[in-house]
């Protein structure tokens, strides 16, 4: 983390919003907590220079329009897990696949990787940003065969990449 104080400020604002209190004792406790967290996190992400995720108002607006679709997919993912793990036969056939999803911005990579993890049957294992390759663990073959079509990829491209 190149600017740890920025993280401390963000964490402190989050703390104050949640506690709804500006009393010195609570703010001091929040400050100590924020510093401890920032110190711990800086060791985790300190190797690579963190580039800021630039987000434009248009991207935010499109992301809000994307949210209902994402929530629908999260509900479908949970029903899929419920059907799978409550089935006595435990019908899974796991496979790790690689998909080529070229994206220009870091924020789209984050958005796509997290969306893949939250949607049915798929989990982002690794992302190679230089080769634009996403390594994805799939619970079943049908899901794995549908991934190269890139339904989510096209959604994310529309949200974060198109003008």
């Amino acid at each position: 983390m190149n600017r740890p104080y920025l993280l401390v400020v963000m964490l402190l604002v989050f703390w104050v919003v949640l506690t709804e209190s500006l009393s010195p004792a609570e703010v001091a406790l929040g400050l100590v907590t924020a510093i401890v967290i920032a110190l711990g996190v800086s060791r985790l992400v300190g190797e690579e220079e963190a580039r800021p995720l630039l987000v434009t108002p248009r991207q935010v607006a499109r992301f809000l329009l994307y949210m209902p679709y994402l929530v629908k997919e999260i509900v479908a993912a949970n029903i899929h897990v419920a059907e799978t793990v409550l089935d006595p036969r435990l019908p899974i056939d796991p496979i790790i696949i690689e998909c080529h999803y070229p994206l220009a911005h870091d924020v789209s990579v984050v958005g796509l990787a997290n969306s893949i993890t939250l949607t049915p049957g798929t989990l982002t294992v690794d992302v190679d940003k230089n080769k634009d390759t996403f390594r994805i663990h799939c619970l079943g073959r049908e899901v794995a065969e549908a991934m190269p079509e890139g339904e989510l990829y096209h959604h994310i491209r529309h949200v974060f990449e198109e003008d």
Binding site: N78, I92, P94
Partner: peptide, 17 residues
């Protein structure tokens, strides 16, 4: 579920919802 990866599926999706 049998291994680490498939367990992570269940833990992540169900904790979120």
């Amino acid at each position: 579920l049998p291994d680490f990866y498939s367990r992570t599926h269940a833990a992540t999706k169900c904790d979120t919802l």
